[in-house]
Amino acid sequence: MNRDELKDIILSALIGVAPEADPATLRDNVPLRDQLDLDSMDFLNFIIAIHKRLGLEIAETDYPHFATLSSAISFLESKLSKS
């Protein structure tokens, strides 16, 4: 799975919790919680959506990797290549 495909998966999970999110204006290196009004429930639902889509276990201690779009893509990329 390449970075673009991962990005699409992350964006669709984000839109699921924040329907007003516009993928075209989201910036890769700016924290998602600064760009979108996400609370911890939204964030949990976001992680759950990625978990369901990719079948990956994501530990709470890994949550910081999901701070930005690009860090999340990198994290998922390395996680998938190991599994």
Binding site: L44, I48, I58, A59, T61
Partner: peptide, 17 residues
Amino acid sequence: LAEKNAALPVPDRILYA
């Protein structure tokens, strides 16, 4: 809670709220 969540799959995790 961190200890409890570590043992739980993502969808079952509990928020501190």
